[in-house]
Amino acid sequence: MSTVLTIARKEFRSYFASPMAYVVTTVFLLIGGFFFYTMLSYFSRLSFQFMQYGYSEEQLNINDMVIRPLYMNLSLILLMVIPMITMRLLAEERRSGTAELLFTSPVTAWHVVGGKFLGALGLVAVLAILTCVYPLVVLMVGDVDPGPAASAVAGLFLMGAGFVAWGVLASAASESQIVAAVTSFGFLLLLWVVSWAGSITEGSLASVLNYLSVMAHYEEFTKGILDTSHLVFFACLTFFPLFVAAQLLASRHGR
């Protein structure tokens, strides 16, 4: 375990040793802030209109109209950002030759995969925590239910873990960072929208496709529903690619 943490710490620090972490965080928060601003302005205009026409303000729920769509959008941005965070993890080691130093050290494939995964997940955790700023702002001025907001952040992190795991696999499979980024992005996007195909098919195929949709599972988190079936889904989403990546590295280096 200490070997995993050694690698994880090194990876996490190396994001902050380059502009990488700062650029990713800035872009992520900038886009998030844009969504937040537009949604909140729309909400306040709507509630102003509601008051003018004498409707009850009670019908407007800030959780449903701001927090939930905001986090759905943030999750999509995360889907685009994570392949860029993970692409270098193993591909760069292989391209630059440092893989020789890493894999001739007495580490197992799981140490490397686990360390790389946790290192990148650290940065994703930073992003997820920083998004708390949006619900907190709303909390200061309005009546937001903190439960669903908290589960939306937690869900963002869990989903991020799954995305990072696929990114680790793509980076392990390719020597090129660009190839790793494009394949993991493409795959994650497909996983995101796979339920669209579910709506035009029928029977068990449709339910499989619906089950695989990351979006559908995450949506439950934004509603504040913490169901074990969704936790299991994200656990599998995370573990499976890590397992494949570890097998890949183990066979490549004869372990």
């Binding site: 050694t6 040793a17 020789e100 890493l102 050290s105 007495p106």
Partner: peptide, 26 residues
């Protein structure tokens, strides 16, 4: 092992890199 071309982690400090490999190698 000293591989050909002396590839190293470019963003680490000399001491940091040595401490990292010391930790990895137990």
């Amino acid at each position: 092992y000293v591989p050909e071309n002396a590839a190293l982690y470019r963003d680490m400090t000399v001491r940091g890199l040595l401490a990292y490999f010391a930790a990895l190698r137990g």
